[in-house]
Simulated scan of single mutants.
Amino acid sequence: MSMAATARPVLSLPWRRYLLAPVVLAIALMAGTAIGETVIPVDTILKVMANHLWNAGYPVDRIDAGIIWNYRLSRSIVAACVGTGLALAGVVLQALLRNPLADPFLMGISAGASTGAVSVTVAGLGAGALTLSGGAFAGAMLAFGMVVVLAHLAGPGGRGGVLQASGAIILAGIAGAQLFNALTAFIIARSASAEQARGIMFWLLGNLSGVRWDDVRLAIPAALAGLAICLWHRRALDAFTFGADSAASMGIAVRPVRGMLIATMALVTAVMVSMVGAIGFVGLVIPHAMRFIVGSRHTRLVPACALAGAVFMIGSDVVSRTLIAGQALPIGVITSLIGAPALALILIRGARLT
Rank of each mutant, 00 (worst) to 15 (best):
P9A: 08
P9D: 10
P9T: 09
R16T: 09
L20A: 15
V24N: 05
L25G: 01
L25S: 01
A26T: 11
A26Y: 07
A31P: 06
T38H: 15
V48L: 07
H52S: 02
N55Y: 12
V60F: 00
D61W: 02
R62T: 15
R62E: 15
I68Y: 12
I68T: 13
W69T: 04
R72C: 07
L73C: 00
L73E: 02
L73G: 00
L73H: 01
S74P: 14
S76K: 04
S76Q: 05
G85C: 03
A89T: 11
V91K: 02
L93C: 06
R98N: 04
P100D: 01
P100V: 00
L106T: 13
M107A: 00
I109Y: 05
I109C: 02
A111W: 08
V120W: 04
V120F: 04
T121H: 10
T121D: 12
G128P: 13
L132C: 05
A136G: 13
F137W: 06
A138L: 15
M141V: 13
M141K: 08
M141N: 08
L142G: 09
L142E: 09
H152W: 12
L163Y: 10
Q164M: 14
Q164A: 14
A172F: 06
L183Q: 00
F186S: 01
I188P: 00
R190T: 14
S193D: 13
S193L: 06
M201Q: 10
M201S: 12
L205P: 11
G210Q: 11
G210M: 06
V211A: 05
R212M: 07
R212D: 14
R212A: 11
D215Q: 13
A219W: 05
P221K: 04
G226T: 01
D245M: 07
G251C: 10
V254M: 02
V257H: 08
R258I: 01
G259N: 15
M260Q: 12
I262E: 05
A270D: 11
V276L: 12
I279T: 03
G280D: 07
G280M: 10
F281W: 15
V282H: 00
G283N: 14
I286G: 07
M290W: 12
F292W: 13
G295S: 10
R297P: 10
L301V: 15
V302L: 10
P303C: 09
P303W: 08
A304C: 03
A304Y: 00
C305I: 11
A310T: 09
M313Y: 02
V318H: 02
V319R: 11
V319A: 12
I334G: 00
A351I: 09
L353Q: 14
